[in-house]
Amino acid sequence: MAFGGNPVFRGKNFRSAVTTAPPVPHAPYGQQPYGQQNPYGQQSPYGQPYGQQAPYGQMSPEQLDQMYKAPSAGPVETGRMTYDDVIMKTLACLGFVVVGAAVTLFVPAGAAMGLMVLGAIGGFVLALVNSFKREPVAGLILAYAALEGLFLGGITRVIDGIAPGVGFQAVLGTVAVAGVTLALYKSGKVRATPGLMKFFLIAIVGYLAFSLVNLGLVMFGVVSSPWGLRGMTIMGIPLGVIVGLIAVVLAAISLILDFNSIEQGVRAGAPRRFAWTAAFGLTVTLVWLYTEILRLLAIFNSND
Rank of each mutant, 00 (worst) to 15 (best):
R267V: 14
L296T: 15
G122P: 02
G265T: 04
G244R: 01
F124A: 15
S302Q: 13
G119N: 05
P61M: 13
G195E: 10
S131C: 05
R272H: 09
V158N: 06
P108S: 12
L250N: 03
V76A: 14
H26K: 15
G100E: 09
H26M: 11
T181N: 06
S225K: 08
N6D: 13
V117K: 01
G206C: 10
G119R: 04
M81K: 04
N6F: 01
A192K: 02
D258K: 00
V8S: 07
L297E: 00
A203T: 10
R272V: 05
R10D: 14
R10E: 12
G165P: 03
G122T: 04
F220S: 14
I237W: 07
G179D: 04
S225T: 13
I202W: 11
Q42R: 14
M67R: 15
D85F: 00
A109P: 00
F210C: 06
G57R: 13
A183V: 08
D65F: 07
P49H: 06
S224T: 14
G195H: 04
L94R: 01
I293F: 04
Q264T: 11
V180F: 08
L294Q: 06
T78S: 08
N260M: 09
A192F: 14
Q52K: 03
L245Q: 06
S60C: 04
L297I: 13
A54D: 08
I155M: 15
F132E: 12
R134H: 10
F132R: 11
L282V: 10
V223S: 08
E135K: 13
A143T: 15
Q36M: 15
M81I: 09
G79F: 05
P55L: 07
G265V: 03
Q32V: 05
F199Q: 08
G153V: 02
G269N: 06
T291P: 02
I299W: 05
A209G: 11
A70W: 03
V125E: 04
G195P: 01
L208V: 14
G216V: 08
A112T: 02
P22Y: 08
I299Y: 07
L289Y: 06
L294F: 12
M59F: 03
K186N: 09
I204M: 13
Q36K: 13
G100R: 01
E292F: 14
A183F: 10
V175A: 14
G139C: 05
A279C: 07
S131G: 03
G206Q: 07
K186D: 09
S72R: 12
M235W: 12
L152Y: 02
P75G: 03
P28I: 08
F200D: 00
V287G: 13
R157I: 06
R10W: 11
D84V: 10
R295W: 00
L172R: 00
V175H: 00
L255F: 00
V98I: 12
A127Q: 08
P164M: 11
A143N: 06
D258G: 12
L142E: 01
I237N: 07
I155A: 03
L64G: 11
T277L: 10
G149W: 00
G79D: 08
E263P: 01
T156G: 15
R230A: 15
